[in-house]
């Protein structure tokens, strides 16, 4: 009988190979959505995509309305403040996340935040474990020379 933290790998007859799979990638946002990423970096603005047909404002923005397949061509500013809708509190550190992603020190809160003017929820994080659903939050922007047109240009959200 063995458990996952006591695999019998010290037994010399059970040979195992340990590898690391690396998957290099480049991801292109597309011309339309590039505008929203550049707005984060240059203007500290959060843009959503508004479907003309159903008035839904997608944040993160996208160029097609998933429901009616209509092409979306309008970006509108949303937030920056929003309301916390769903939460989970993170109490552990994960080795690989820490190595490859930016991470807050635990405990911190992962939250789905509905920004003012948006129809959908944005995933982000909030320091600490005292956040409740319905709390009003605002973005904490990364310094001007640290922003690189990524969602991490908002370091985290914090209570208003």
């Amino acid at each position: 009988m063995y458990t996952t933290d006591k695999l019998p790998l010290d037994q010399k007859d059970c040979f195992g190979k340990f590898g690391l799979m690396s998957i290099p990638y480049r991801y292109f946002a597309g011309l339309f959505l590039s505008e929203a990423m550049i707005a984060l970096r240059d203007d500290k603005k959060i843009l959503g995509a508004k479907c003309e047909k159903c008035d839904k404002v997608y944040v993160p923005p996208r160029s097609r309305c998933e429901k009616d397949f209509s092409k979306i061509t309008e970006l509108v500013e949303v937030g920056p403040e929003g309301t916390v809708e769903e939460i989970t509190v993170v109490n552990y550190e994960e080795e690989y996340f820490k190595k490859f992603c930016s991470m807050l020190d635990p405990p911190y809160t992962m939250a789905l935040i509905k920004l003012d003017g948006a129809s959908t929820k944005l995933l982000h994080r909030i320091p600490g474990d005292k956040i409740k659903r319905g709390d009003r939050v605002k973005p904490k922007w990364a310094a001007d020379d640290k922003r690189e047109a990524m969602i991490t240009d908002i370091e985290y959200f914090e209570k208003v």
Partner: peptide, 15 residues
Amino acid sequence: HREDVNMVELVSEAV
């Protein structure tokens, strides 16, 4: 090169 679209947008074109 299709840096002008993302994966979803590329698929949308064919659809």
